[in-house]
């Protein structure tokens, strides 16, 4: 009898403990959960992250401070910040946003990919006030960018730490920004078709029409509009939205037995009669090949 009593008491205690545990969890998870008041950008909702990227790109367009833009993008916690920028630019174009609004994103993606600012920094901002995202940008990471806009000196670049609490910069930026490389297109300069290569690769997208646009010094340039027309329609797109394939790269999918005309906007270059070529694989089977068109400003 006493054993039964003891077991009953133990069960009651366990039951009381479990009820208490349940009440505690309900209170801490649902009634009064932990509230965040000091959140970081990495946990922003996706549409706010998009907005954040737009603002980063707009700021970069003004300051041309590539290291700082990179640090700010890192705060968003994207695995591939450049890829995210490009993807967002394409999403915005696809949603009908004007190119002027998308261009800063594409420009930032292009500059991050090439490692230096396209336009020299007019006023060198230090990066010390950008909040820390658990990373450090060292001299080796930024050296390429710095070298493009600032004359190299024998003195090694200092390591720049991104402090959580902004502090007065201890290293003064005294280098004078020098205009160096500007890959933007020369206004109005026509593009000449300097290469038209058939691409027969069974593994690649059938009918892939690839473009590479370069300036007179054979450097790829982003932001050039290409218009492709055919008898049933027209499509337009810009170079530089796939920076991983080149700043001057763009592509388009051709259909079989369709004749396309291509116009490069700005230089008014016009190339008619473009057709997807037929290729043959080693087994003798025909498939739709691709074309690589290379344009260059004189």
């Amino acid at each position: 009898m006493s054993r039964l009593n003891l077991r009953s008491q133990t069960l009651q205690l366990i039951l009381a403990l479990l009820i208490g545990l349940g009440l505690g969890l309900v209170y801490s998870w649902f009634l009064s959960p932990v509230t965040y008041v000091d959140a970081n950008p990495a946990i922003l909702r996706a549409d706010f992250k998009d907005q954040y990227r737009v603002v980063i790109a707009a700021s970069y367009e003004s300051t041309h401070d590539l290291a700082r833009a990179r640090a700010r993008l890192e705060l968003l916690g994207d695995v591939d910040p450049v890829g995210e920028l490009s993807a967002q630019a394409q999403r915005m174009l696809g949603a009908g946003e004007p190119f002027d609004k998308v261009r800063p994103l594409a420009q930032l993606a292009t500059d991050l990919n090439q490692g230096f600012a396209s336009i020299p920094t007019p006023t060198p901002f230090t990066a010390l006030n950008t909040p820390q995202g658990g990373f450090t940008i060292s001299a080796t990471e930024t050296q390429t960018e710095e070298a493009a806009v600032i004359e190299a000196t024998p003195t090694p670049f200092p390591t720049i730490l991104f402090e959580q609490t902004p502090i007065t910069p201890s290293v003064a930026e005294t280098n004078t920004p020098r205009p160096t490389f500007t890959p933007n297109p020369e206004p109005g300069a026509p593009f000449a078709l300097v290469g038209q290569d058939t691409v027969c690769a069974p593994a690649s997208q059938p009918g892939l029409l690839q473009f590479t646009l370069m300036d007179s010094r054979r450097r790829e340039i982003a932001g050039i509009e290409i218009i492709v027309t055919w008898n049933q329609g027209e499509d337009s797109f810009f170079t530089g939205f796939k920076p991983e394939l080149g700043n001057g790269y763009a592509d388009f999918i051709m259909q079989a037995d369709t004749v396309y005309s291509i116009r490069i906007v700005g230089g008014e270059t016009f190339i008619p009669n473009i057709i997807a070529p037929a290729c043959t694989d080693p087994n003798g089977v025909e498939y739709l090949g691709g074309l690589l068109l290379t344009f260059q400003q004189p």
Partner: peptide, 19 residues
Amino acid sequence: IKLVIAALIGIALGLTYGW
């Protein structure tokens, strides 16, 4: 009293886990 103490311990454990 034992039951109340057990319930309070349970609540404390629940809050610790949830917070």
